[in-house]
């Protein structure tokens, strides 16, 4: 059976208003052959987990600029677990200080990408990680 295209949810939790960066990422991943579900700004942890569940995505990408990641991300991870989505690949981007990356990895984030990351690198990372997961689980 041919693999389906990688499905990615791009969401922007928290209250900061602009989503230029998130849209750039969404377009880049589309150009890399992925199906990107874009839900926009001001997403609550519940909304993000619900969308990930209904859309049956392989990847959840969170973009944040407000600095609230250490507060919001654990709640999102928790919601995803509650909904049985613990296997989803988690990545984040935006403004995330280096010293927080260890904490994020521990939370379950496979990658954290700062503003300097090339979108090609991001797409490559996602592709490799999803391929590894698909090879690992037999459904």
């Amino acid at each position: 059976m041919a693999d389906r295209p990688i499905r990615v949810l791009i969401a922007k939790p928290g209250l900061d208003g602009h989503d230029r960066g998130a849209k750039v990422v969404a377009r880049a991943l589309r150009d890399a052959g992925m199906e990107v579900i874009y839900t926009g700004i001001r997403q609550t942890p519940e909304m993000i987990a619900e969308a990930a569940l209904q859309e049956d995505v392989d990847v959840v990408g969170l973009s944040i600029l407000s600095g609230a990641h250490l507060d919001l991300f654990p709640r999102i991870v928790d919601q995803l677990k509650q909904k049985g989505m613990q296997d989803v690949l988690l990545v984040c981007g935006g403004i995330i200080p280096d010293e927080d990356i260890a904490a994020l990895k521990k939370m379950g984030f496979a990658g954290a990408f700062g503003p300097g990351t090339s979108t090609q690198d991001l797409a490559k990372f996602i592709r490799e990680q999803v391929a590894a997961r698909r090879a690992g689980v037999t459904t």
Partner: peptide
Amino acid sequence: GAILGDRLRMQDLAG
């Protein structure tokens, strides 16, 4: 690839 953006307009239905 594709950008699927319809949910953006359906936020009232979340939750």
